[in-house]
């Protein structure tokens, strides 16, 4: 084959030189060729809504982590944070595409032009009340110690859920989970090592790590409470009831904090699901304004 001057020119060949929607990857159909049949006895709306829950958590946390780019304490750490965010963005993309494949698009499809793929329509053209992410991932980063405390908690919960989700009756979810487990193991252990280094470091790093943990812990009030969608899908063998990962998550977090010489805060009392039900604080709206603003101003832009 005649090789292209740059690898990116290849993208143009494939599309006849038409350019690509500027806010996506130019790579349509992340699920091209994947069997997206809904398992027997499963409500497609439930399945799509569950994919939004898992996908929105990844999308929102990826966006938060990306805010560290150009501001991380050292270059290697900046690259690490960007890598973690990229893994999460990849998970979000597949999960939002899975939601789109079963027709769960909310009000996004009426706002996004037809050329915009489902997963991008869901990411850029939903309002905050249509997002199903938890408050844990939407909370502002704070300092580096708090960012790592939140990443540790979020990755620990997600890894525990994904490890079980590998057995899902939905083959798409099972495949996304199996890949995600390999990635999330790196994320959790990376954040855990930082907590050790900070907690068992200087007086100042210990103080910041403890402050980070103390700020993140109250955000756990609704993460172990299943929504009705999760309860129904768990019974159908498709989803993981978050209540079933509580013991494992608490054991992992207790071990990290103990070795980091940090005090384990009291676990907050369980509340009804908030973020999963579309109830969010203003911080999610601020984050989405950043994430969505450009795509909305130039909805059909290509490059």
């Amino acid at each position: 084959m005649a090789h292209e001057e740059t690898v990116y020119e290849a993208l143009d060949h494939a599309s006849g030189g038409e350019g690509h929607w500027a806010f996506g990857t130019g790579f349509d159909e992340p699920l091209a060729g994947v069997d997206t049949t809904v398992p027997d006895g499963v409500d497609p709306v439930d399945l799509g809504t569950y994919c939004l829950m898992l996908g929105d958590d990844a999308l929102v946390l990826a966006q938060r982590l990306t805010q560290w780019v150009t501001a991380a304490p050292e270059l290697e750490e900046e690259v690490a944070i960007a890598n973690v965010a990229l893994d999460l963005l990849g998970q979000a993309r597949l999960l939002l595409a899975r939601a789109g494949s079963v027709g769960v698009l909310g009000r996004s499809r009426s706002r996004a032009t037809a050329s915009i793929p489902d997963e991008d329509a869901l990411a850029y053209f939903r309002e905050p009340d249509e997002f199903r992410s938890t408050a844990l991932v939407a909370a502002p980063n704070g300092d580096f110690a708090r960012t790592m405390a939140r990443l540790l908690v979020a990755a620990t919960i997600r890894l525990a859920v994904f490890a079980r989700l590998r057995e899902s009756r939905d083959s798409v979810l099972a495949a996304i989970a199996a890949k995600g487990v390999n990635e999330l193991t790196y994320h959790r252990d990376h954040a855990g090592r930082w907590l050790l280094r900070l907690g068992d470091g200087t007086a100042e790093s210990h103080r910041r790590a403890q402050d980070g943990v103390d700020t993140v812990w109250p955000l756990l009030a609704d993460v172990f409470t299943p929504t009705d969608v999760e309860t129904r899908l768990t019974a159908a063998g498709v989803a993981v009831d978050p209540a079933t990962v509580r013991a494992e998550v608490q054991a992992v977090l207790g071990e990290v904090l103990g070795r980091a010489t940090l005090r384990l805060p009291d676990w907050p009392a369980d509340t009804a699901p908030r973020g999963r039900a579309g109830e969010h604080g203003p911080e999610l709206g601020d984050l989405l304004a950043d994430l969505q603003g450009l795509a909305r101003q130039h909805p059909a832009a290509t490059w």
Binding site: A10, H13, G90
Partner: peptide
């Protein structure tokens, strides 16, 4: 059939386009 190395691998689109281009050229 291709499989992504990492879920977020941004090279997947280029791989796909390179494959199409190579096979079309052939």
């Amino acid at each position: 059939e291709i499989t992504p190395t990492y879920t977020g691998c941004p090279a997947m689109g280029v791989m796909r386009a390179d494959l199409l281009h190579a096979l079309h050229s052939a």
